[in-house]
Amino acid sequence: MNAAKDIIECVGSIQPLPDTALKLMNVMSDPKSKLEDIVSAIKYDQAVTSEVLKLCNSAFFGLSREVTSLEDALKCLGTAKVLQMVMSIHTNNMLAREQKGYGLDPGILWKHSVAVALASSQFAQKLRLADTNLAFTAGLLHDIGKVILNEHVAEEFVEIVRLVTDEQMAFVEAERQVLGFSHEEVGAMIAEKWKLPVPIVQCIRYHHTPSELEPLSPLVDAIYLANTVCLLLGIGIGADGLCSRADPSVLERHGLRESDLEIIGVQVVVELRRVQSMFGDTSATDHEDE
């Protein structure tokens, strides 16, 4: 099976994450970070700075005066919003492409990723985790492995779908059987190569299988629940559909009920619409799994 070897080579040659994103993630995972630390992580990246200012001044926020600097943006909108915005800008480039193997048209994986990011930060709040920004980023990157595997699933796709359809296999199990790796595992390899914080690597690695991680991590559980809600609601899903295993023990260990999922689902759909309009993106809703 050459696919596994190809995949490892592909991970080896993936472009590095921009410095700004890395710096930001380190700032975000340090609870002692101050406003200045965040500004200095972004300000040398002209493209991102101008994009942040453009988005801040968009009709979406309806601010009464013009935002002219990063400091201004952070004060007006709060650090959380700006951090989320910067991460979304960075990942847009990687995730917005068509993922043909997964049956995802351009923009759809990004839409799914943003929805999971929004839901992740909601679940992080619900589980009273300290860092909702970290959850947002982990949610945004959870499916990054699909970007690499996509190049390999085109041919093997038929067999993956057969296993999923005929043998009731979960999509990640079928990926592993046919390609040697699941998109969770490939995503974690990419995240390690990018030297992302360990909690983010764990979220990517276990977002379909949170109970396999030892010791258990509430952050991983939050990302699992967020992804589950988005799959159920069909937000940005492709040929893998809903072929992910339900893990009710996640609900049990946090004392959650299904109605908690529903309430967060409703909020996510409303927020997602706002984010899409902020990025001027309405097309992404128009071209899903066919």
């Binding site: 979960a170 809903l242 072929c243 295993r245 339900a246 009710p248 299904e258 999922l261």
Partner: peptide
């Protein structure tokens, strides 16, 4: 009205 792969019938929104 689809569902996850689920033997226990949790997450049964569909």
């Amino acid at each position: 009205g689809a569902h996850l792969l689920d033997d226990n019938g949790t997450f049964n929104i569909g």
